[in-house]
Protein backbone atom coordinates (compact mmCIF):
# COMPACT_ATOMS: atom_id res chain seq x y z
CA UNK A 1 0.00 0.00 0.00
CA UNK A 2 1.45 3.40 -0.94
CA UNK A 3 0.91 6.79 0.74
CA UNK A 4 -1.91 7.78 -1.61
CA UNK A 5 -3.98 4.67 -0.86
CA UNK A 6 -3.33 4.85 2.88
CA UNK A 7 -4.27 8.56 2.91
CA UNK A 8 -7.55 7.79 1.14
CA UNK A 9 -8.41 5.00 3.60
CA UNK A 10 -7.53 7.17 6.62
CA UNK A 11 -9.67 9.96 5.19
CA UNK A 12 -12.68 7.64 4.90
CA UNK A 13 -12.13 6.25 8.41
CA UNK A 14 -11.76 9.74 9.87
CA UNK A 15 -14.90 10.86 8.09
CA UNK A 16 -16.91 8.11 9.82
CA UNK A 17 -15.22 8.78 13.16
CA UNK A 18 -16.18 12.45 12.91
CA UNK A 19 -19.71 11.58 11.79
CA UNK A 20 -20.29 9.14 14.67
CA UNK A 21 -18.59 11.39 17.20
CA UNK A 22 -20.82 14.29 16.28
CA UNK A 23 -24.00 12.17 16.25
CA UNK A 24 -23.37 10.83 19.71
CA UNK A 25 -21.82 13.96 21.14
CA UNK A 26 -18.68 12.11 22.22
CA UNK A 27 -16.40 13.71 19.63
CA UNK A 28 -14.25 12.13 16.93
CA UNK A 29 -11.17 11.43 19.06
CA UNK A 30 -12.53 8.48 21.02
CA UNK A 31 -13.08 6.43 17.85
CA UNK A 32 -10.23 7.90 15.87
CA UNK A 33 -7.24 6.94 18.03
CA UNK A 34 -8.30 3.24 18.32
CA UNK A 35 -9.00 3.20 14.57
CA UNK A 36 -5.57 4.62 13.67
CA UNK A 37 -3.64 2.43 16.11
CA UNK A 38 -5.56 -0.86 16.05
CA UNK A 39 -6.62 -0.92 12.38
CA UNK A 40 -3.89 1.06 10.59
CA UNK A 41 -1.03 0.12 12.93
CA UNK A 42 0.02 3.74 13.42
CA UNK A 43 2.17 4.66 16.44
CA UNK A 44 -0.06 5.93 19.27
CA UNK A 45 1.85 9.24 19.53
CA UNK A 46 1.24 10.08 15.84
CA UNK A 47 -2.38 8.98 16.26
CA UNK A 48 -2.84 11.23 19.30
CA UNK A 49 -1.22 14.16 17.46
CA UNK A 50 -3.50 13.82 14.43
CA UNK A 51 -6.53 13.32 16.65
CA UNK A 52 -5.78 16.42 18.73
CA UNK A 53 -5.65 18.56 15.60
CA UNK A 54 -9.00 17.21 14.42
CA UNK A 55 -10.48 17.93 17.86
CA UNK A 56 -9.65 21.62 17.41
CA UNK A 57 -11.20 21.61 13.93
CA UNK A 58 -14.51 20.12 15.07
CA UNK A 59 -14.66 22.30 18.17
CA UNK A 60 -14.14 25.55 16.25
CA UNK A 61 -16.34 24.35 13.37
CA UNK A 62 -19.26 23.47 15.64
CA UNK A 63 -18.80 26.50 17.90
CA UNK A 64 -19.51 28.91 15.08
CA UNK A 65 -22.98 27.37 14.81
CA UNK A 66 -23.56 27.08 18.58
CA UNK A 67 -22.66 30.63 19.65
CA UNK A 68 -25.43 32.13 17.57
CA UNK A 69 -27.98 30.18 19.58
CA UNK A 70 -26.83 31.97 22.73
CA UNK A 71 -26.27 28.88 24.85
CA UNK A 72 -22.54 29.06 25.62
CA UNK A 73 -21.66 30.45 29.06
CA UNK A 74 -18.40 32.26 28.28
CA UNK A 75 -17.67 33.07 31.94
CA UNK A 76 -18.03 29.47 33.12
CA UNK A 77 -16.00 28.32 30.12
CA UNK A 78 -13.20 30.81 30.61
CA UNK A 79 -12.93 30.23 34.35
CA UNK A 80 -12.79 26.43 33.96
CA UNK A 81 -10.27 26.80 31.16
CA UNK A 82 -7.71 27.74 33.80
CA UNK A 83 -8.06 24.14 34.99
CA UNK A 84 -8.30 22.48 31.56
CA UNK A 85 -5.30 24.31 30.05
CA UNK A 86 -3.08 23.62 33.08
CA UNK A 87 -4.24 19.98 32.87
CA UNK A 88 -3.57 19.91 29.12
CA UNK A 89 0.03 21.01 29.64
CA UNK A 90 0.52 18.39 32.37
CA UNK A 91 -0.99 15.73 30.07
CA UNK A 92 1.14 16.76 27.09
CA UNK A 93 4.32 16.61 29.20
CA UNK A 94 3.24 13.22 30.59
CA UNK A 95 2.68 11.93 27.02
CA UNK A 96 6.41 12.32 26.43
CA UNK A 97 7.39 10.26 29.49
CA UNK A 98 4.67 7.58 29.72
CA UNK A 99 5.18 4.55 27.45
CA UNK A 100 2.86 3.93 24.49
CA UNK A 101 1.45 0.80 26.16
CA UNK A 102 0.39 2.74 29.25
CA UNK A 103 -1.21 5.42 27.09
CA UNK A 104 -3.14 2.63 25.35
CA UNK A 105 -4.34 1.17 28.67
CA UNK A 106 -5.41 4.57 30.05
CA UNK A 107 -7.16 5.24 26.74
CA UNK A 108 -9.04 1.96 27.07
CA UNK A 109 -10.22 2.81 30.58
CA UNK A 110 -11.38 6.25 29.40
CA UNK A 111 -13.28 4.57 26.54
CA UNK A 112 -15.04 2.14 28.90
CA UNK A 113 -16.01 5.01 31.16
CA UNK A 114 -17.20 7.18 28.24
CA UNK A 115 -19.30 4.29 26.95
CA UNK A 116 -20.80 3.83 30.39
CA UNK A 117 -21.79 7.47 30.90
CA UNK A 118 -23.13 7.86 27.37
CA UNK A 119 -25.45 4.88 27.77
CA UNK A 120 -26.74 5.98 31.17
CA UNK A 121 -29.96 8.01 31.08
CA UNK A 122 -29.51 11.59 32.24
CA UNK A 123 -30.70 12.48 35.72
CA UNK A 124 -33.67 14.81 35.59
CA UNK A 125 -33.26 17.85 37.76
CA UNK A 126 -35.79 19.63 39.89
CA UNK A 127 -35.83 23.35 39.12
CA UNK A 128 -35.58 26.01 40.54
CA UNK A 129 -32.72 25.97 43.05
CA UNK A 130 -30.81 28.35 45.33
CA UNK A 131 -27.86 30.40 44.06
CA UNK A 132 -24.34 29.40 45.12
CA UNK A 133 -22.31 32.29 46.70
CA UNK A 134 -19.05 31.52 44.88
CA UNK A 135 -20.76 31.19 41.50
CA UNK A 136 -22.57 34.47 42.15
CA UNK A 137 -19.28 36.18 43.01
CA UNK A 138 -17.83 34.90 39.74
CA UNK A 139 -20.93 36.13 37.86
CA UNK A 140 -21.54 32.66 36.42
CA UNK A 141 -25.33 32.57 36.77
CA UNK A 142 -27.00 33.22 33.45
CA UNK A 143 -30.04 32.37 31.33
CA UNK A 144 -30.54 30.30 28.19
CA UNK A 145 -33.17 30.41 25.44
CA UNK A 146 -36.04 27.88 25.59
CA UNK A 147 -39.33 27.72 23.66
CA UNK A 148 -40.92 29.43 26.70
CA UNK A 149 -38.41 32.30 26.63
CA UNK A 150 -35.22 32.97 28.58
CA UNK A 151 -34.77 30.46 31.38
CA UNK A 152 -32.43 31.64 34.18
CA UNK A 153 -30.17 29.08 35.92
CA UNK A 154 -27.72 28.93 38.82
CA UNK A 155 -24.24 27.39 38.76
CA UNK A 156 -23.11 25.20 41.71
CA UNK A 157 -20.06 23.35 43.10
CA UNK A 158 -17.42 25.47 41.35
CA UNK A 159 -14.41 23.95 43.24
CA UNK A 160 -15.34 20.32 42.49
CA UNK A 161 -16.10 21.21 38.88
CA UNK A 162 -12.68 22.88 38.69
CA UNK A 163 -10.88 19.77 39.95
CA UNK A 164 -12.75 17.53 37.47
CA UNK A 165 -11.76 19.91 34.67
CA UNK A 166 -8.12 19.54 35.69
CA UNK A 167 -8.52 15.78 35.17
CA UNK A 168 -10.38 16.27 31.86
CA UNK A 169 -7.62 18.59 30.63
CA UNK A 170 -4.87 16.12 31.56
CA UNK A 171 -6.65 13.29 29.71
CA UNK A 172 -7.06 15.53 26.69
CA UNK A 173 -3.34 16.38 26.64
CA UNK A 174 -2.22 12.82 27.31
CA UNK A 175 -4.51 11.01 24.86
CA UNK A 176 -5.14 13.59 22.14
CA UNK A 177 -8.90 13.60 22.65
CA UNK A 178 -11.36 16.39 23.49
CA UNK A 179 -12.55 14.65 26.69
CA UNK A 180 -15.94 16.24 26.05
CA UNK A 181 -17.83 13.49 27.89
CA UNK A 182 -15.95 14.35 31.11
CA UNK A 183 -16.40 18.08 30.68
CA UNK A 184 -20.14 17.70 30.12
CA UNK A 185 -20.38 15.34 33.10
CA UNK A 186 -18.66 17.89 35.34
CA UNK A 187 -20.86 20.77 34.23
CA UNK A 188 -24.18 18.97 33.83
CA UNK A 189 -24.09 16.61 36.82
CA UNK A 190 -21.76 18.33 39.31
CA UNK A 191 -22.17 22.04 38.62
CA UNK A 192 -25.83 21.51 37.68
CA UNK A 193 -25.67 23.66 34.55
CA UNK A 194 -28.48 22.94 32.00
CA UNK A 195 -27.49 20.17 29.57
CA UNK A 196 -27.62 22.33 26.42
CA UNK A 197 -25.45 24.98 28.06
CA UNK A 198 -23.04 22.28 29.31
CA UNK A 199 -22.53 20.73 25.86
CA UNK A 200 -21.98 24.02 24.04
CA UNK A 201 -19.70 25.41 26.77
CA UNK A 202 -17.79 22.11 26.77
CA UNK A 203 -17.34 22.45 23.01
CA UNK A 204 -15.93 25.95 23.48
CA UNK A 205 -13.50 24.67 26.09
CA UNK A 206 -12.39 21.63 24.05
CA UNK A 207 -10.79 23.78 21.34
CA UNK A 208 -8.88 25.93 23.82
CA UNK A 209 -7.77 22.90 25.86
CA UNK A 210 -6.57 21.07 22.74
CA UNK A 211 -4.71 24.18 21.53
CA UNK A 212 -2.84 24.26 24.86
CA UNK A 213 -1.43 20.76 24.35
CA UNK A 214 -1.09 21.12 20.55
CA UNK A 215 1.84 23.53 20.96
CA UNK A 216 3.73 20.93 23.00
CA UNK A 217 2.74 18.17 20.54
CA UNK A 218 4.11 20.23 17.64
CA UNK A 219 7.40 20.87 19.36
CA UNK A 220 7.81 17.22 20.27
CA UNK A 221 7.25 16.20 16.65
CA UNK A 222 3.97 14.28 17.32
CA UNK A 223 2.08 16.01 14.53
CA UNK A 224 2.87 14.40 11.19
CA UNK A 225 1.50 16.43 8.26
CA UNK A 226 0.93 13.42 6.00
CA UNK A 227 -1.24 11.80 8.65
CA UNK A 228 -2.89 14.89 10.18
CA UNK A 229 -4.05 16.09 6.75
CA UNK A 230 -6.55 13.30 5.90
CA UNK A 231 -7.57 12.98 9.59
CA UNK A 232 -8.34 16.68 10.04
CA UNK A 233 -10.19 17.04 6.71
CA UNK A 234 -12.10 13.78 7.20
CA UNK A 235 -13.19 14.41 10.79
CA UNK A 236 -14.16 18.01 10.02
CA UNK A 237 -16.41 17.03 7.11
CA UNK A 238 -17.87 14.04 8.97
CA UNK A 239 -18.70 16.04 12.07
CA UNK A 240 -20.29 18.88 10.12
CA UNK A 241 -22.49 16.33 8.34
CA UNK A 242 -23.24 14.60 11.65
CA UNK A 243 -24.39 17.89 13.16
CA UNK A 244 -26.90 18.25 10.30
CA UNK A 245 -28.57 14.90 10.85
CA UNK A 246 -28.22 15.11 14.63
CA UNK A 247 -31.78 16.30 15.19
CA UNK A 248 -33.27 13.34 13.32
CA UNK A 249 -31.05 10.58 14.64
CA UNK A 250 -30.53 11.18 18.36
CA UNK A 251 -32.22 8.19 19.83
CA UNK A 252 -31.61 5.96 22.81
CA UNK A 253 -30.97 2.97 20.53
CA UNK A 254 -28.16 4.79 18.74
CA UNK A 255 -26.56 5.77 22.03
CA UNK A 256 -26.60 2.18 23.27
CA UNK A 257 -25.12 0.82 20.03
CA UNK A 258 -22.39 3.42 20.22
CA UNK A 259 -21.74 2.65 23.89
CA UNK A 260 -21.22 -1.03 23.00
CA UNK A 261 -18.81 -0.13 20.18
CA UNK A 262 -16.89 2.20 22.50
CA UNK A 263 -16.70 -0.48 25.19
CA UNK A 264 -15.40 -3.06 22.68
CA UNK A 265 -12.72 -0.62 21.51
CA UNK A 266 -11.88 0.07 25.15
CA UNK A 267 -11.26 -3.62 25.92
CA UNK A 268 -9.20 -3.95 22.72
CA UNK A 269 -7.03 -0.94 23.67
CA UNK A 270 -6.44 -2.29 27.19
CA UNK A 271 -5.64 -5.75 25.81
CA UNK A 272 -3.23 -4.35 23.19
CA UNK A 273 -1.57 -2.21 25.85
CA UNK A 274 -1.12 -5.18 28.20
CA UNK A 275 0.21 -7.27 25.31
CA UNK A 276 2.77 -4.54 24.61
CA UNK A 277 1.62 -3.79 21.07
CA UNK A 278 1.90 0.02 21.13
Amino acid sequence: MNILELTALIWVGSFFAGFLGSLTGLGGGVVLVPLLTLVFGIDIRYAAGASLVSVIATSSGAASAYVKEGYTNIRVGMFLEIATTVGALIGAFLAATVSGNWIGIIFGIVLLYSGYISSKPRRVRLAPDKPDPLAVRLKMDSAYPTPEGQQPYHVHSVPLGFVLMLVAGSLSGLLGIGAGAFKVLAMDQVMRIPFKVSTTTSNFMIGVTAAASAGIYFNRGYIDPGLAMPVMLGVLLGSLLGARVLVVARSRVLRIIFAVVIAALGFEMIYSGLAGRF
Binding site: N2, G221, I223, D224
Partner: peptide
Amino acid sequence: YLYRHGASAPNYGVFHGEPTGLRT
Protein backbone atom coordinates in the same frame (compact mmCIF):
# COMPACT_ATOMS: atom_id res chain seq x y z
CA TYR B 1 2.27 16.36 -0.86
CA LEU B 2 0.32 13.53 -2.48
CA TYR B 3 1.33 14.61 -5.99
CA ARG B 4 5.02 14.39 -5.01
CA HIS B 5 5.03 11.56 -2.48
CA GLY B 6 1.80 9.64 -3.13
CA ALA B 7 3.59 6.64 -4.60
CA SER B 8 6.12 6.23 -1.74
CA ALA B 9 5.74 3.69 1.05
CA PRO B 10 4.30 5.05 4.34
CA ASN B 11 6.05 4.58 7.68
CA TYR B 12 3.82 5.55 10.58
CA GLY B 13 4.21 2.33 12.52
CA VAL B 14 7.38 3.47 14.24
CA PHE B 15 7.63 6.80 16.00
CA HIS B 16 10.65 8.84 14.93
CA GLY B 17 9.41 12.41 15.49
CA GLU B 18 9.14 15.13 12.88
CA PRO B 19 12.24 16.93 11.52
CA THR B 20 12.98 20.35 13.07
CA GLY B 21 11.71 22.15 9.95
CA LEU B 22 8.22 20.80 10.68
CA ARG B 23 8.22 21.36 14.46
CA THR B 24 8.77 25.07 14.95
